[in-house]
Design a binder for these strands. Structure first.
Lengths: 327, 327
DNA sequence: CTGAAAGCGCTTACAG
DNA sequence: CTGAAAGCGCTTACAG
């Protein structure tokens, strides 16, 4: 910038004004500055300006998702990016892998880079370590999972409600022996989905927790049908579990005899046989709302923190409408 | 930092030394500094340090992918993130949507934030506008698509080879009437895949270009089978086209009578009926190699730019092994 | 409409 | 082992 000022024969401040499009510069002077900037191939350094700027905003958001390679996180990320771009901000993305150790490390890394807000999915059971950062003015929006030990904006799916809806759908189709297959009970989402299941489920539900991935889901389903009184319907409370269940039912030759409703849509869910009925979440809407909240808080820091619930939709495709079979 | 120094009763430089873990600080002094930092809840500002640091590295990478919500880009992004984390760097992620207008805008945004390297997928037909930035020392690695007008590191799939392999697989199964269905011919990847197809294909191949999405693929396939001499096999040169083709074949009742090989794997490709044979790309390997190249160049700026080809694998699942049917 | 001085939070290049 | 001075590239808060 100094070189540009020298070449154009103006003061630093004038170059700054031209670069930032502030008015009140004589067109002729401005033209000279622009010519000098082009000649020297000048690129302003945004972060250098941040140092002295009154609001100290870096116009950078930190995003922590489960795993950016997974479609749910990908859609959240895309939404955050879209909103950020509209506000002239950039997004630093990190994948958590549900690892509590990583959580603190990733967040520390983002904080050192002075992100204006953090939009984050968490793995630890307590987030009170972020209170001081929040007091310092960093925006905090929790997505997908509600935090503990801190009051902040939260954007989540209607986990319990959606689960109850799924179970009622199965009961409406005549099922009474319904099995729940869910993720690790430490996860807030797993707790909520089980809670919703219990609210709507018949009196003696079958509950299988701690199913961590597709392979474990296959095993869990095989085990269920190895018992004297197997379920007539499955509610799989996570997308990988749904995929594992489809695989297992197919191997067992039960695809067309056991009803299945999954939580969270799966890719090509309409092309498998039978097509799979799911409660579809809206990850783009979650990310969008979260990013909008972050920017709203930058504009009005006194906003009271709130929890936003994004609705899910029952997508009826066939697997959830199979009637109970007499064994 | 000034406050920490004052509270600990030491000089600025000593605080700096403790924060950065430089040796040569008396344990006692260091402890006092750490206590002061905790008490004041001090967070170092990484970018402020960058300003005066000799290497001027921001330890930030810029990533431009097609769309982070799409599984291919997601895997590339995840790989870049993993390598960056190992090197203490963070990643600014942007989605291009194959929009040439966006390309310049997104890149300008990243450059203003002084990324050390740019790892990018491009939509424009020429990237010579990046030469000056490259000369200034910003690392440039092109992924998925080769650039024009600039010499830089490139990491791509073996598009032409993999396409030829796919077509030979179909011919080995007796097919002579094979249709190619591909994306916009402006895209480098589409050109390469068509080139590979032509190398291996029989003398009078059927070529359908400019298929932009799933819906267009459905229409294109329906049209093919509305003709006097329809193909006995399809080579769908992009994942959304593959999905559209599966849908169309199912509607036409031809799923088990027309062979299909897709370029790029699709989710749940093994669970549809028939399971779909594909040339599987390795997006994680592409992202990983690209990020490693970026860091290698930071360490050794004189490295000659090179092109790296990441191999694909034929995944045989059923749809590609259907023999030609007598109509 | 324009510019000189001061300073943001750090690191560098010294001197002790 | 420790610290004072200078300066990175900008913006602020002035004065003219």
């Amino acid at each position: 910038m100094r070189d540009v000022a020298a070449l154009a024969g103006v003061g630093l401040k004038t170059v700054s004004r031209v670069i930032n499009g502030e008015s009140k510069v004589a067109p002729e002077t401005a033209a000279r500055v622009i010519r000098a900037a082009n000649q020297l191939d000048y690129q302003p350094d945004f972060y250098a300006g941040t140092l002295k700027r009154t609001d100290r905003r870096t116009r950078t958001l930190g995003l922590v998702v489960g795993n950016i390679a997974n479609p749910f996180s990908g859609s959240v990320g895309r939404a955050v990016e879209d909103v950020a771009t509209r506000h002239g901000s950039a997004v630093l993305t990190s994948s958590l892998d549900d690892d509590p150790e990583r959580e603190e490390q990733l967040i520390a890394n983002l904080l050192r880079r002075r992100v204006d807000s953090l939009i984050l999915t968490t793995a630890r059971s307590d987030q009170s370590y972020l209170v001081r950062e929040q007091e310092r003015g960093t925006g905090l929006v929790f997505v997908d999972r509600a935090p503990a030990g801190i009051v902040a904006d939260v954007v989540v799916t209607d986990n319990a409600d959606a689960s109850a809806t799924a179970v009622r759908h199965l009961m409406d189709h005549g099922h009474h022996r319904i099995a729940y297959l869910g993720d690790r009970p430490q996860l807030w989402t797993a707790q909520e989905r089980l809670r919703g299941f219990r609210v709507a489920a018949p009196s003696h539900p079958i509950v299988v927790e701690d199913v961590e991935d597709e392979d474990e889901a296959v095993i869990a389903v095989e085990r269920l049908f190895d018992q004297p009184e197997p379920p007539t319907a499955l509610f799989t409370a996570q997308n990988l579990i749904t995929i594992g269940a489809i695989r297992a039912l197919r191997r067992l030759g039960l695809s067309s005899r056991v009803a299945l409703v999954g939580f969270d849509d799966i890719p090509l869910g309409d092309l498998v046989e039978p097509a799979v009925t799911v409660m579809r979440q809206d990850p783009y809407a979650i990310g969008e709302r979260a990013a909008e909240l972050a920017f709203a808080r930058h504009a009005t820091p006194t906003l009271a923190p709130a929890t936003y619930v994004i609705p899910s939709t029952l997508v009826v495709r066939g697997s959830g409408e199979i009637p109970p079979q007499l064994s």
